[in-house]
Write a protein that binds this DNA or RNA. Structure first.
Lengths: 111, 111
DNA sequence: TCAAAATACATTGCATTACTATGTATTTTG
DNA sequence: CAAAATACATAGTAATGCAATGTATTTTGA
């Protein structure tokens, strides 16, 4: 079970999927990085590494899909909160259409 | 519509997804390369390039998920037919489980 | 008490894979 | 008879997940 091929495949499936999942998570709430990893683990079967999340969030920021702000804590390390921009919301909607079309196709193939 | 970000994202989504789709297509029938591209275009919204398909099929073959055989034509260029191996079938079943779990998670996020 | 685990951020370099461009050759179509 | 379609293939580039590594603070459990 879970042969090397399947493991590598799962890693490839994450390319693209992770960005889509994160934008969906950020649609209704803002979250900080560590919290985003928890959300992904809570809502999906996906394992997300720190070395994946932080560069990804920086890309999304650079692309103008999210913004971020530092929030000081009364104790502990400051947190960087991310939120969707208007562009991010519009982009997410386009992505959803593509995803749903793809998914419909795949479900047909699974029968 | 279809901004540069979305286009690049769609390309990333294909990583992994394409292998999954092709294995599913080959589950019940054998097909040759060009025919596989037609099947993908017919059943999905995905555009697949020749430079994507042939290296991908070679990988799947190298991994032992498919075998291939040349079939001479009465006229025209010989065709290379691909079929799933037992390993390929077993691997596909593992992939389906992963995909369905992922998809269930994503559908929850879409609400 | 104090070491380990958890929280919280981040970067570097490697491995993998889709895609463009390019190449060869045959057959069909307008 | 030229263009498009059919049919295979490869080299090089771009993009991204991930392990490894680093810093720093707080909580937990033995």
């Amino acid at each position: 079970m879970n042969s090397e091929f399947v493991q590598k495949w799962q890693s490839q499936v994450k390319k693209g999927t992770l960005a889509f999942i994160l934008l969906n998570i950020l649609k209704d709430n803002e979250f900080y990085g560590y919290e985003l990893m928890e959300q992904v683990r809570k809502f999906t079967t996906i394992e997300i590494a720190e070395g994946t999340l932080y560069p990804l969030m920086n890309r999304l920021k650079k692309e103008g899909l999210v913004t971020s702000k530092w929030v000081e804590q009364e104790s502990g390390i400051p947190r960087k909160y991310y939120q969707l921009t208007e562009t991010g919301v519009a982009t997410l909607l386009e992505m959803r259409v593509y995803w749903q079309n793809l998914e419909t196709s795949i479900q047909k193939l699974l029968k």
